[in-house]
Simulated scan of single mutants.
Amino acid sequence: MHIQTKYFGEMSVDTTKTIQFPSGLPGFVDENEFVLFNLSETSVYQILQSTRNKGVAFIVVNPYVFYQDYVIDLDDHLMDSLQIKDDQDVAVLSIVTVKDPFDTSTMNLKAPVIINSQTNRGKQYILNSDAYPSKAAITPQDSSLVKGE
């Protein structure tokens, strides 16, 4: 299938790689199908791109790249709705708010995107705790959140 993307123009997409978000994403409830593209071959950043609307695309990153001690507990309802049977099947992404200069950009640790990598089902999961901010620094300032410091 071919889709129009926000950052790369027209792209060919393997339909087996599309990620279904049955409830959409907060603020984008009608956007139910996305695909992940690497921003570049060497970047840790990816693009979560809607397959239907080229204007709906999010820069995302694995939060563990920056916050190795990041811990979230997924409730049973989420585990059931995403058909998660094994922790190894879970991919966690944080949506990045890009700012200029880039090193002032932030990532949302309060509402990670959870994806079952086996079934390609996803959901943005809003944590019921204030343990993590919605605007965490891309370069962690709080050494208690960074493993080994």
Score class of each variant (00 low, 15 high):
residue 1 M to V: 14
residue 2 H to W: 00
residue 2 H to G: 00
residue 4 Q to N: 13
residue 4 Q to K: 14
residue 5 T to H: 06
residue 8 F to E: 06
residue 11 M to F: 03
residue 13 V to L: 09
residue 14 D to K: 07
residue 15 T to M: 12
residue 16 T to F: 00
residue 16 T to S: 15
residue 17 K to C: 08
residue 20 Q to T: 12
residue 21 F to C: 06
residue 22 P to I: 10
residue 23 S to T: 02
residue 25 L to M: 14
residue 27 G to L: 06
residue 27 G to S: 08
residue 28 F to Y: 13
residue 32 N to A: 04
residue 32 N to R: 14
residue 33 E to L: 09
residue 33 E to T: 15
residue 35 V to S: 01
residue 36 L to Y: 07
residue 37 F to L: 08
residue 37 F to H: 10
residue 38 N to C: 10
residue 38 N to W: 13
residue 39 L to W: 08
residue 40 S to C: 02
residue 41 E to L: 09
residue 43 S to N: 12
residue 44 V to Q: 10
residue 45 Y to V: 05
residue 45 Y to A: 05
residue 49 Q to I: 10
residue 50 S to I: 00
residue 50 S to Q: 10
residue 51 T to N: 01
residue 54 K to T: 04
residue 55 G to S: 14
residue 56 V to R: 06
residue 59 I to T: 12
residue 61 V to I: 15
residue 63 P to F: 08
residue 63 P to A: 06
residue 64 Y to P: 02
residue 65 V to I: 15
residue 65 V to K: 14
residue 66 F to G: 06
residue 66 F to I: 02
residue 66 F to Y: 14
residue 66 F to A: 11
residue 66 F to P: 04
residue 69 D to I: 10
residue 70 Y to L: 12
residue 70 Y to R: 03
residue 70 Y to M: 11
residue 71 V to K: 14
residue 72 I to V: 15
residue 72 I to G: 05
residue 74 L to H: 10
residue 76 D to R: 14
residue 77 H to I: 12
residue 77 H to M: 03
residue 77 H to T: 11
residue 81 S to G: 00
residue 82 L to T: 10
residue 82 L to Y: 03
residue 83 Q to C: 01
residue 83 Q to V: 08
residue 84 I to D: 03
residue 84 I to S: 02
residue 87 D to S: 13
residue 88 Q to Y: 05
residue 88 Q to F: 04
residue 89 D to Q: 15
residue 89 D to M: 11
residue 90 V to Q: 07
residue 90 V to T: 03
residue 91 A to N: 09
residue 91 A to D: 05
residue 91 A to R: 07
residue 92 V to S: 03
residue 94 S to I: 09
residue 96 V to A: 07
residue 104 T to D: 09
residue 105 S to C: 03
residue 105 S to Q: 04
residue 106 T to D: 03
residue 111 A to G: 08
residue 111 A to D: 09
residue 112 P to R: 10
residue 114 I to E: 01
residue 115 I to L: 07
residue 118 Q to A: 11
residue 119 T to S: 12
residue 120 N to G: 01
residue 120 N to T: 02
residue 123 K to D: 01
residue 123 K to V: 04
residue 124 Q to A: 01
residue 125 Y to E: 02
residue 126 I to D: 07
residue 126 I to E: 10
residue 128 N to P: 12
residue 128 N to G: 13
residue 130 D to L: 11
residue 130 D to R: 07
residue 131 A to P: 00
residue 133 P to C: 09
residue 136 A to D: 03
residue 136 A to M: 05
residue 136 A to V: 07
residue 136 A to G: 02
residue 137 A to F: 10
residue 137 A to T: 09
residue 138 I to V: 15
residue 139 T to Y: 13
residue 139 T to L: 14
residue 141 Q to C: 04
residue 141 Q to D: 13
residue 142 D to I: 11
residue 143 S to D: 12
residue 144 S to N: 14
residue 144 S to C: 03
residue 144 S to M: 06
residue 145 L to E: 06
residue 145 L to Y: 07
residue 145 L to T: 10
residue 147 K to Q: 12
residue 148 G to I: 02
residue 148 G to V: 01
residue 149 E to I: 08
residue 149 E to H: 11
